[in-house]
Structure formats: C-alpha cells, structure tokens
Amino acid sequence: MKISDIISLGLWPESKKTTSQKGITQLEELGYNLFYIGKNADLYTCPGNDPKVLLVRSDRCSVFDIPLNLEIEGKGISQTAISNSGALFANKAGIKTAILNEKVDQSLEIAPRCQIMELCKPLEAEIEGDIVQFEFIFRNYLTGSLFEACQNGRDPYGLELSSDLPQWHKFENPIFTPTTKGVKDIPLNSLTVREKFPEIINSLENLFKEFSKFALDNGIIVVDTKFEVFVNSNDEWLLGDEVLTPESSRFISKSDFDVANYISMDKQILRDFGKADNWKEKAKTLKAGEKLDVVVPQEIKDKILNGYTTIQNNLGK
C-alpha cells in the first residue's frame, strides 16, 4: 500500500509531512518503504493492500516535543519489548491495540525494534463546540501540575478536589483527568468526557487498576498513565503502540517510593535534566527540521536505560 492510498482512506492526515528518503536497505528490499521520520521512530508502508504500517523504533530521544541530537543505545529495543508487553496486558483484559501479531522476518538485525501496526486515526468528538482529539489520563497519586492547580484553588477537570490534599496523596480510586491532544494539552471536564465515552472510559479505568496492581506486585508504583484511543477502518476503537509504557506512564520503584524518594524510572529523568539545562528556551531558536544540540552525561543515559530495563524485566511477564 502506498502513502497516497493511506491518505485516501482517511488514515493519515494529508497535512502531515512525509519523507522521500530511503529507509533501511533490508526493509526496503522486502517491500517496506519509509514514508515518515518521527522524533523517536520511523514508519514504513507494508507490502500488500492491507491498511497497516511498520513502526521501527530508534534510539533517538525527545522531550517537551523537542527533537534532540541525543541517542541512548539500546533504548529502542527496550521500548519495543515494553510496548509489546503492555499491548499483551491490554489484550488479556479484552482491549484491542493497534499492534498486530504479524512480525517482520525475525532473522533481521532490526527485528527487535519493529512492530507491524494496524492503521487507524485518532478518536475525535465535539466538546463544547470544538472537534477535539483526546488523551485519556488516569492518576493514582496527586502530584505534578494537578497538585499545583489544587494548591492554587483551580479545578481544571471539575473534580472538586480539596486544596488541603498533600502532594503524593493516594486516591482510593484512580481519578480521570482527560485533555485534548495537540501542541498544547488543554484540560477537559472529567464528567463530560465520561458521559461522551462511558464504555471506553470504564474499560480503560479497569485496565489501569489491574495494571497498577500487577505492577505493585512486581515492585513498581504506577503514578499515572495516558491512553491514546484510535479508530480503525472498521470503526472499532483501539489503543496505540504506547500502552502502559515509560513513554505514556510514570513509574517509580516501590523501594524508592516507600522511603519518599520519588525518582522516576521513565523519561521524566531526561525532562528534569532538560529543565535544569533550559532546553525549552534554547529550542526557541531552532529552525524547522533542526534538532537541539545537547550534552547529556553518561550517568543520566545509564539511569534512563536502567529504568527501562527494570520495567522490562519486572513487568514483561
């Protein structure tokens, strides 16, 4: 299937820039053709006429939606393994993901970075007069931007949380804090979105609860997670490739959490480093297609990769 066919099916936005660059030779020779280079992964069309694509994860890194000249060797392979495990966990809970069981030739060196995905488009709906796409976020703990909002008397999701709640307060039941998906994520009223998608939200809430318990039993605290819901060519809803992974969730080892040492095991480590190094301000001078030149100590790279490896080993069961 060609990219023009994918666009005509409404499964790829015509406005999203594609590439004419050649991809990995072994894949191109097998009929997979590179059409999109992302911040962390590349997309190839697949041989045949079925609506699917090949995702190939790189070791590239990005934070704050800033492309970086940084690679962490082995991260792409670890990410792919965690993504496959997260998708399998969702499948066992009765929730479909875009990741297909079909595999590339496993003798290829690139195979551990590859996932064949069903083509789909983001779930959209009208909210307060606007057509929006969504990020469905569930939280076990009060922290980050939501804690700051509570402290300042703001209620971005209509949850009526008390301003007296301390940071890292554990909710008896996870709270649902949906946002729009875009350049800037805008908080949405929790009840309004629940009423719009009751079956989807209930299914995802149950999945989040089950996964949080599973992770806790295996030594990892799940602080929160983000689900991105898509619709396939049969108008069925499903999840993408980042399901219960460090790219969509915040994880802390239970041993650290129990002593109030809230060290993130995911890319929050890189965000924190980038915040201290003022990457957002530095990125303002970037031109289209440029990457921010950053220097990250090996110690930080090792910490990130060790976090991914621990998540993979503990939760990939």
Rank of each mutant, 00 (worst) to 15 (best):
N234P: 02
T18I: 09
N202C: 04
E199N: 15
F138K: 01
F35H: 10
Y141T: 01
F230I: 12
K121Q: 09
I131R: 03
L34V: 08
K282C: 02
E281G: 03
Y32R: 05
E290T: 07
V243H: 03
D224P: 08
Y157L: 00
W168P: 08
L100Q: 05
Q26L: 12
P174A: 01
K284C: 06
T80D: 05
G182R: 00
T19L: 04
T180F: 00
A125R: 05
N101P: 06
G76F: 02
A149M: 10
L34G: 07
G153V: 05
N206A: 11
I127R: 07
F138I: 01
N313L: 13
P187V: 01
E71R: 02
A41L: 02
S233T: 09
L55I: 13
S85C: 14
Y44W: 08
K287H: 14
A93V: 03
I127W: 13
K291F: 02
G48V: 04
T97F: 04
F138A: 01
Y32H: 07
E102L: 07
T179N: 00
I221G: 00
L108F: 05
F214P: 06
I311N: 04
S212R: 06
F64W: 10
M1S: 08
K287I: 10
I200S: 06
N261T: 12
L142A: 03
N91R: 14
G158C: 05
N173I: 11
G307Y: 05
L216Q: 10
E148R: 09
N69M: 11
C46F: 06
R57A: 15
A260V: 09
W279L: 07
V104H: 00
E118I: 00
L68V: 11
K226R: 08
I200F: 03
Y157G: 00
I110V: 15
V223R: 01
K2G: 13
C61F: 02
L146K: 03
N91F: 14
E118S: 00
P47Q: 10
L43K: 11
Q268V: 04
I77D: 08
A283N: 11
D258N: 13
V231Q: 11
E128Q: 13
F89D: 02
F227L: 03
V295S: 15
I200Q: 09
V183A: 15
A93N: 14
K196A: 13
L270D: 13
W168L: 14
V259R: 10
I252C: 10
N261W: 11
K103N: 12
L108C: 04
L88N: 03
E160H: 15
I24D: 12
G182Y: 00
P178E: 02
G48I: 05
L100R: 04
N278R: 12
H169D: 09
K16Q: 12
I220V: 14
D155S: 03
E126W: 08
